[in-house]
Each structure stands twice: as structure tokens, then as C-alpha cells.
Nucleic acid binder design. Structure first.
Lengths: 344, 344
DNA sequence: TTGAAAGCGGTACCAG
DNA sequence: CTGGTACCGCTTTCAA
């Protein structure tokens, strides 16, 4: 039902149409030099024969693959999914195809993935975050294609970057909590050395907390990313045992905040009266919990879209304005009842 | 920082190593016929030169691209994300690279995507669902590569299929609700003609409801997919206005069920006392709401994994047992308080 | 406007 | 075990 039979080649179409391969090639690509009637004729014949262009062969000759390689830690994360989606859509507009690789939050896996992806000769490469192995950096340096780091503001940028400061995002939330009267403040995050963006948020968060003279050690490491509601619920219990007087907690992601909130509520702890909860990521769920969860909107889709536009400009025809790294819209704090106590 | 300079080719490595391209080719692929010392030598030189194999060139000669094309409606759906992840992981094991295309729940977009993807000469193609345009079917028939339809049991299978009966899943939930004493039963789904799997669930649901002699017209069309909590909340209000005496509702996805439940609760309607709620998809959130939401676990990851294994067997060395379509584990009903009323 | 020949960067095949 | 040669399917180039 699906076994290899010889697929027609361009030469076969040419023969059937009584022209040369070159004419078929031109007709298929819409080259103006082919007579309109002839072109229509060729297209019809190609269609009838079920001819499908072999892009691999064209690429070899033109040296343009139309691939953009992309590595993300995980696709099972609404934020990354949004970014990938935005990126894919924009690139599709200009005929570029995304090659996706998952790194599972491991820089070693990332290096391996990049090595694999580069063999496909992508015209640009998009990575998540600004932390990479030396090996990966070497690969990227040698590849001589545009590199875009996303979701971060790298200390040592490789090429372009489209992202924001996760530390600032954490700090912003800390100030919000403090402004609303919280003083014994905690953070639930991933284990150290795994999710670098989450760590940056935690770092910025506690830096800000410290600036107000408050305790900065209430950190719960809830496991390896990606963290979900399950881990959030577990971490909430740990938090209560370890620092029972905590009156506010930020979670590395909304999924975690949701799980933590549920755990508190089932233990009879009032949110936000006894403990305020904040998340990150503006997941859909956060707007519909009771109370709704204060969070930070990272504009994930826009990160993808901006990255796509940047790449389109880099690979497209020479533009007047040279493309530059783009920081996009800064993350937005979304205040909701889980920290403000205001009724819905 | 990233401009085109001539990348080294295999011939360059060969020259530097003082051997022929053929020897380099063999060394790089681990062909046993190359002396071990020579191979080490060549690998080192290739490494130093920053040589990266051009797979496009190999593919042309070997006629094996290592691509598997995959179309999914959307990646912003935990179920599809899980499937893609499972599929990607398995295929990566055997050196296959996924080429992903998004169809936005449109069969026309799907046809277009398939057309684009086939030009990359994938060795297999995975599509979501069993409903396709005639054009898409023609493309697939001509491609002469294995085709796997997932997430469904197609009426007219194109090739292999890995999925389950969405109608059965809907029917199962209907029986569950009826068994728990519900009689005025509704369904919140997508607009007709968009999400075929969701429609199948709805159809099976109402068929079962009808078999018990109950009303089968309480259908709320909540918009185009993907539906979220927002649409669920809105639909819940519509449901109350349209069929105020409804005592149970199944939603096409857990996200929708969550939004609907929140809406009911904010309106002071007790779940499940006044109205029972069920979802589909076993999203993480469903286990942590109050009450937790009864749902159906489709084993999305496993669908991806089984599809990957099927393809690996199809494309791998001749196996003794011929590969067949695999239905995987049947969806599992997860009973929770939102329909049973049992305390957590 | 069209076609013939060469070549993109690898690997199959066969000779040595 | 190693190398020469042809060729994968398309497009560039140049001539007609």
C-alpha cells in the first residue's frame, strides 16, 4: 500500500511535455521567460504525473535549504509552544521550514541536537536561552549562519537575541509582593543547574527581596523541569514545613503556582489572606482559578514572531536597515486576586 | 558575526588527511573497512577543520532523507504536544528527524502543508485524524511512502493508523454520567466542521445518551478550535441560558471543562451537586481543580511512541513480523469528584 | 525563449 | 583496505 516505486523526476515531466528539463524547471518556478501557454501545459502534465519537486536536489545546487533550526527545552510548555508557533508561522510566510529539536533543559543535549541539525545546513539557528556548552558555541561559531538566542538576555551573546531579562521579571514580582505588604517571601523553582531562565527569575526575585532587607533564603527546589501542578503541590507542603510563617510565594511557572494554591487551599490555608501566590507565564489556567493567579505575561508568541521577522530580514533580500537584536515588549505584570486580595 | 564563508567539504578534509574522499566518507560513517588509526586521524582532522557533513548531498545519492513529516492541528494543545514529543523521541533514537507542520484544524491547510512537506522527500508521513481533502489523499497515494493516521480510527484508512475511537470515548463518558444519575445531559464542543475528533466524541456521546432515551440536542458550539478556559466559561453561561435544567455536561477538552466549572462556581452553581462536569484529555490541571475533573486519558504520549515505533519498523531493516496498525491502549476513564460527588 | 553541459557534495559500485 | 568514476535530481551558465 505504500512501497517504493520510482517517483517521476523532472526529466520525466520534460519528456512527457516534449521540452527540456530546464524549461520545466523554469515553468515550475514561475520564471517569466517561459511562454504562458507552455507553462500551463507543463504544470498540467506535472500535476497529472503526480510530480513532486525534490527540494533536496535543488538545495544542493542552489545552496539554500530553506531550513531554520530551532532548539527548545520542551514543547510541553505553553510558553515555548507559543513561541514555536509564532516563529513557524512567520517563517512559513517566507518559505522557510522550521527544524525542531528538543533539549530537555540539558545543555549537553542541546549541543548534540545542534550538531545534528547543522548537518541539514539550516540557514539560521534559533536557540532558547543564553547558556550553552563550549562545544555548542564552537559549532555555532563555525556554522557561519545567523544565530538567535531567545527567551533571555545573554551575558555573552553569540549573535542576535530576542528576549527579556528573567531576573528583572523576578524582581518585578518581588516588588509587587512587597508593595502589597508581604514580608516573609519564598520562591518555588526547579533544581539548580537545570532551568537557567527560571533560575534567573529566582535570582532577580531574591535580589530585590534582599534590597528591602527581607530574608532571601526561602527557596524550594521542586525538581527537574518541566515542573507541573503536581510538583507545585508537593513543594507547597515542603514550604509549609520548612518556613511555616511564609506569607507570599512566587512560583517559577503558573502550572506550579496552580498546584501550590490547590495544596494550600486543601490544607485550609487562605489564599491570599494567609499566603499570597504568584506565578510566571500567563498560562490560560491562571485567569480562571479562584482566586485568579497574579502572573507575568512574557509575550511568548511575540518572541517567536519577532525572531521570525528578524530571520526573514536577515535571509531575505538586502534591506536598507540592518537587522538588530530585538528585545520585544517587556514582560507585563498581570495583577490578580491571588496576591492583591481584591475580589474577582 | 555570521556571514557566509566557504564551509569545508569532504574533499577538503580528504586533502588535509592525504586520503581520498571515499575514505573520509567511510571513516565518518564508521565503515569497518577503514583502519582504526586512519579513522581516528581523519576524525581529528575533520573536527579541527570544523567539518560538518552535508546531509542534503548524501540524501541525493542514497535516496534516504531521514525525514518523517508530521502534521498536527496545533502544538498549543497538551495532547498533541505529548504525541509529538513521544514521536520525536522514538524517531530520534533511530536517526530520523521530524518535520513538523501545523494545520490549524483546517483540512485545506493540511493539504497545503502536505504538499510542502512532500518536497522534502520524507520517508514516512504522519497525519492527525482520518479526515482529509481529496487532494491530500491523492498526494499521499502518489507519495508511495508509509502513511500513519493518528488520534482516530479512520473510516477509510489511507495506510496505517494509531489511535482510538473518539466516538467510543464520548459514549463511555455518557454512560458514566448516566450511571451516576444524570438525565439532562449536554456537550460543549467546537463549531461544526472544524475539530473532527471532537465532533466524533460529541456524536458518540449523544448516541449513547439517546440509547437511554434521554434528550440529545443540548449541544453548545463554543467556537473554533483550539478552545480554552475562556470559551468554556462563555459556553457555560450560554448553556445555562439555553438549557437551565441541565444536570451534566461533557466538554470537548479539559481546558474547556475547567473554564466552564469556574463559570458555574462563580455563578453560585454547585459542582457536581447541581451540575456534573467532565472533560477530555487528562490535562494536568484537571487533577488539581476543586472538585477535580472527571476526564478521559487518551494516552497521547503513547500514541506518539507507538507511531514512532511503527515507523521505525517500517523503515528499518526487514523485520520478521510485518508491521500492522496499532490501536494502542484504549482511552481510560478517570473518575473524579466533578461527576461522582465523592469527596477528594 | 529554449537547451546542452557542467556541477552542487556526497556515496554506490567496482577495480586493484 | 583504498581509490576512481559515475551519478543522485536539480539549477546555473552560456550559447543558440
Amino acid at each position: 500500500m505504500s512501497n517504493r516505486k520510482a517517483l517521476p523526476r523532472m526529466a520525466d515531466v520534460a519528456k512527457a511535455a516534449g521540452v527540456s528539463s530546464m524549461t520545466v524547471s523554469r515553468a515550475l518556478r514561475g520564471d517569466a521567460s517561459v511562454t504562458e501557454t507552455r507553462r500551463a501545459d507543463i504544470l498540467k502534465i506535472a500535476q497529472e504525473m503526480g510530480y513532486i519537486l525534490n527540494r533536496g536536489a535543488s538545495e544542493l545546487r542552489t545552496r539554500r535549504t530553506g531550513f531554520v533550526a530551532v532548539t527548545v527545552p520542551s514543547i510541553n510548555n505553553p510558553n515555548f509552544a507559543d513561541s514555536v508557533r509564532g516563529l513557524t508561522d512567520v517563517l512559513e510566510q517566507v518559505g522557510l521550514q522550521v527544524l525542531l529539536g528538543f533539549t530537555d533543559y540539558s545543555v549537553d543535549d542541546e549541543e548534540r541536537m545542534i550538531g545534528q541539525l547543522l548537518r541539514r545546513k539550516p540557514e539560521a539557528l534559533v536557540v532558547t536561552g543564553g547558556t550553552h556548552t563550549d562545544g555548542a558555541r564552537a559549532l555555532l561559531a563555525n556554522a557561519s549562519i545567523p544565530v538567535v538566542e531567545t527567551w533571555d538576555e545573554p551575558d555573552a551573546p553569540i549573535g542576535y537575541s530576542v528576549g527579556f531579562s528573567n531576573a528583572d521579571a523576578g524582581a518585578r514580582m518581588a516588588r509587587h509582593l512587597i508593595k502589597h505588604g508581604r514580608r516573609r517571601i519564598a520562591f518555588i523553582g526547579c533544581d539548580t543547574g537545570t532551568d537557567f531562565r527560571g533560575e534567573a527569575r529566582s535570582r532577580g526575585f531574591f535580589e530585590s527581596v534582599g534590597q528591602y532587607g527581607l530574608e532571601t533564603h526561602r527557596l524550594i527546589e521542586a525538581g527537574k523541569p518541566p515542573l507541573g501542578a503536581q510538583e507545585g503541590a508537593q513543594a507547597a507542603k515542603t514550604l509549609l514545613e520548612t518556613y511555616p510563617d511564609t506569607d507570599a510565594v512566587m512560583c517559577v511557572a503558573d502550572s506550579v503556582a496552580f498546584g501550590a494554591m490547590t495544596a494550600f487551599q486543601r490544607l485550609g490555608i487562605a489564599v491570599p489572606d494567609q499566603i499570597a501566590i504568584a506565578g510566571f507565564g500567563a498560562y490560560d489556567v491562571s485567569a480562571f482559578t479562584t482566586p485568579a493567579i497574579t502572573t507575568i505575561e512574557p509575550h511568548a508568541l511575540q518572541i517567536g514572531v519577532l525572531t521570525g521577522k528578524l530571520i526573514a530580514r536577515l535571509l531575505g533580500p538586502e534591506s536598507d536597515e540592518p537587522p538588530v537584536s530585538h528585545t520585544g515588549r517587556a514582560p507585563t505584570l498581570i495583577m490578580r486576586e491571588s496576591t492583591t486580595g481584591d475580589s474577582a
